[in-house]
Computed example of a mutant assay.
Amino acid sequence: MTRVLVTGADGSIGRAAVHGLQAAGYDVIGLSLRYDHTSTADRPLVGDARSAKDVAEALDGVDAVLHLAAIPHPSLGTPEEVFENNVAATFNVLAQAGQAGIARVVIASSINAFGVPMNVNEVEPAYYPLDEDVEADIADAYSLSKSVDEQSARMAWRRWGTNVIALRFPLVKTREDLFRFAAMAERDPSMMAREGWAYLDLRDGIRAVIAALESPAAGAHVVGLAADDILIDRQTSDLLREYASGVPLRRPVRGRDGLVDTTRAQELLGFKPRYSIHDEEDQVVSAVTT
């Protein structure tokens, strides 16, 4: 594998992924509806991930695909626009890649794929730590689109034999932006309670992407990601007692332990996060590398 197509190449994760893949030695084809930033992609293309023609042309000579193109929040469009855009783009990319015989696709799913974090109803997760099999309760178009994307990945595996890894990203930001979100969450911890105050440093997000692209795992897999700790500088047990007292806890927590089970990421991808918002800048949390 030497050449990777990145859709959504001008998004915040997309730009970092293009740079990270190039630093790892890959040639990168970028596909974006438009470019508001200067792209470092070896071949930046303007096109729509929903277009069979645009994607087929972008796939020429490509060995693997990283699909990030999406409307990333339900507030950025009508429910119809969010759902139709995200589902159509993901299915089209998977179908074009499958028909082209590309063996590996990584798609961006979300911690919201199980529906509870953005649910308009008074619901809570079935348990903590969250894992890939937690019971779904979906009441918004964005969460539904990500759940359908994961089903589309399974279909692509069964139909074309395409190996697909769907990464369930939590809040993924640069270190500087994480501090801003942490300050907001400190003022109102309830705003992130239903996603377990989960986050991931953008640098770890790119490491996870590369690990997924390079994984030899066959089939279609959903993989949950998060830092080893929570975003807020408080004891996890205290937050649970105050904001999620009715949610069963499947394992004991200590200190600022995270509430997303990342066992599958470790076992399937060999991935473990390095960075924590609570450490000195750039201090390595774990010596485990991909």
Rank of each mutant, 00 (worst) to 15 (best):
T90G: 04
V288P: 00
P216F: 10
A17D: 03
T263Q: 13
N85V: 12
Q99K: 14
V93M: 04
N86K: 06
I29S: 05
P248F: 13
E176V: 07
T174M: 02
A220E: 01
D177H: 02
A108N: 08
A70S: 15
M118E: 14
L5S: 03
A211V: 04
F114Q: 12
H37R: 10
L178W: 01
Q266V: 15
T78W: 09
E195G: 05
E132F: 06
T78A: 03
D131I: 07
D282Q: 09
G30L: 03
V288S: 10
L202V: 09
I13L: 14
F271Q: 02
G11T: 13
M192L: 15
L213W: 05
R50Y: 11
L59G: 02
K146L: 08
P117H: 09
T236N: 06
R274K: 10
V260L: 03
A88W: 13
E124T: 10
R50H: 05
F114E: 11
L231P: 01
K146H: 07
A41L: 01
P216S: 10
R203Q: 11
R254C: 10
V172H: 02
K173E: 10
V288A: 11
R254F: 11
R250A: 07
V4N: 01
A185L: 14
A88R: 12
A208I: 02
R187S: 14
S39E: 02
V116C: 06
H19D: 15
V253H: 05
S152H: 13
R250G: 04
E84H: 11
G115S: 07
E122D: 15
T236Q: 01
Y128W: 14
V288Y: 07
S75D: 15
G61Y: 08
L130I: 14
A141W: 05
F114K: 04
R175L: 03
D229W: 00
N92V: 03
L33N: 11
N119L: 03
G77D: 08
T78P: 02
L268T: 11
S190A: 15
T38D: 14
T262H: 00
S143W: 03
Q99V: 06
G196L: 00
V18I: 02
N112S: 15
R43D: 10
E195C: 08
F114D: 12
N85S: 13
D204A: 02
W197N: 00
G219C: 10
P216G: 13
H19T: 13
L68F: 12
G77R: 11
V6L: 01
E81M: 09
I138K: 03
L213E: 01
A126T: 14
P189S: 06
N112K: 04
Y128F: 15
P189E: 12
D188S: 13
A89L: 09
L45S: 08
I29W: 06
I210C: 06
V123K: 09
N85E: 13
F181L: 04
V223R: 02
K173N: 06
Y35Q: 02
V247F: 09
I107M: 13
D36I: 09
V18P: 01
R34P: 09
H278L: 00
S109W: 08
D60Y: 12
R194H: 11
I29P: 00
D201I: 02
A49D: 08
G246V: 10
R159F: 14
G14F: 09
A108V: 06
G14L: 07
T262N: 05
E242W: 03
G219S: 05
